[in-house]
Computed example of a mutant assay.
Amino acid sequence: MTTLNGLRLLPWSGPGGKPCYLSTDNPESYMSRLADVIEAVQLSGASALLEEASEALDNQDTSLDEMRCLVSELTGALRDVLRIATSRGHLRATSDPSESAY
């Protein structure tokens, strides 16, 4: 689970919003497993938020303040999902093509 430079982009950011990376060749290490769990939580949260957004859009009574709050939450969730996609894209790029499910 490493990127082209041997580092895994972690699903959280460091001080100042800077990306955090993990250097390990052990996908079963504590930090690798922690990152996997956090990614799963983030993806689950994004899925639930997407459902909430769909309901809010269908509801004529949703207030402007509620929509602003929802957009703020969606922005954070999208940021998390893009970080995960970037990390996993790097993981796929470094894996053995013969192991690909395509």
Rank of each mutant, 00 (worst) to 15 (best):
M1Y: 00
T2I: 11
T2G: 10
T3L: 04
T3I: 00
L4C: 01
G6N: 04
G6R: 02
L7N: 00
L7I: 00
L7E: 02
L9F: 03
L9D: 02
L10Q: 12
L10D: 02
L10P: 04
L10H: 04
L10V: 04
P11Q: 07
S13M: 07
G16D: 05
G16E: 01
G16R: 07
G16P: 07
K18D: 08
P19N: 13
C20W: 01
Y21L: 03
L22Q: 14
S23F: 09
P27H: 06
S29P: 01
Y30P: 01
S32I: 02
R33E: 08
D36P: 00
V37L: 14
E39I: 01
E39S: 15
E39C: 14
A40H: 09
Q42G: 04
Q42N: 12
S44T: 12
S44M: 08
A46K: 06
S47Q: 14
A48K: 14
L49T: 11
L49I: 10
L50F: 08
L50R: 11
L50A: 09
E51Q: 15
E52V: 07
E52S: 11
A53C: 10
A53S: 14
A53E: 05
S54T: 11
S54V: 06
S54W: 06
E55L: 13
E55W: 03
A56K: 12
D58V: 01
N59M: 05
N59H: 12
T62F: 05
T62D: 02
S63G: 11
S63E: 11
S63C: 08
D65E: 15
D65Q: 13
D65T: 11
E66D: 15
E66P: 00
E66T: 09
M67W: 08
L70T: 09
V71Q: 10
V71I: 13
V71L: 14
S72E: 10
E73I: 02
L74I: 12
L74S: 08
T75G: 13
T75K: 15
G76E: 15
G76F: 09
A77C: 07
L78M: 06
L78Q: 12
L78P: 01
L78H: 14
R79T: 11
R79Q: 14
D80Q: 12
D80A: 15
L82C: 08
L82D: 13
R83Q: 15
I84S: 11
I84A: 12
I84G: 07
A85V: 12
A85K: 13
A85R: 11
A85C: 04
T86P: 02
T86A: 12
T86I: 08
S87F: 00
R88V: 03
G89P: 06
H90S: 12
L91R: 12
L91E: 13
R92V: 13
R92Y: 12
A93R: 09
A93P: 06
A93K: 09
A93E: 13
T94E: 05
T94D: 02
T94Y: 02
S95W: 03
S95V: 01
S95R: 13
S95G: 07
S95M: 09
D96G: 04
D96K: 10
D96V: 06
D96A: 08
P97N: 05
P97C: 01
P97M: 01
P97W: 01
P97V: 05
S100A: 15
S100L: 08
